[in-house]
Amino acid sequence: MTQDRKIKIIVAKPGLDGHDRGAKLLARIFAEAGMEVVYTGLRQTPEMIVETALQEDADVVGLSSLSGVHMYFFPRVVELLREKGLDDVLVVGGGIIPKDDIPELKKAGVAEIFGPGTPTAEIVEFIKKNVRTRD
């Protein structure tokens, strides 16, 4: 009997920001949507996040930042993922992120940015639609 393929998602808080209400809430919502959620906790460096994604064979990496460091962390995570050959991993971000920053983040390879107030169902939907098919 083959198992249903589960979406595996890393939910990570890069940097020193300790506001994890959103990250934890989403971890719970993703699990309710049937995903397997690896929650890393706070104070993650891009290297830690990418190593986790590698070992867990994650389909998605979700990053949350409220302290204004997204322009440094998000592109760096994408860059490191690519270096490790994980170029099919979907990277999404959320938190307090000014709209003017979004085009640059997308150019850097972040698939989507979800600001405060985004319905969680929309985020789940996006992930389900855009997640890689694993060979």
């Binding site: 309710e32 049937g34 929650y39 890393t40 906790g41």
Partner: peptide, 20 residues
């Protein structure tokens, strides 16, 4: 979860320094 089939896997939190 027996209801949703999903799971929150939180053990890594305590093992952050081993991650890299």
């Amino acid at each position: 979860s027996p209801f949703t089939g999903g799971a929150v896997l939180g053990d890594r939190v305590r093992m952050s320094r081993l991650a890299v």
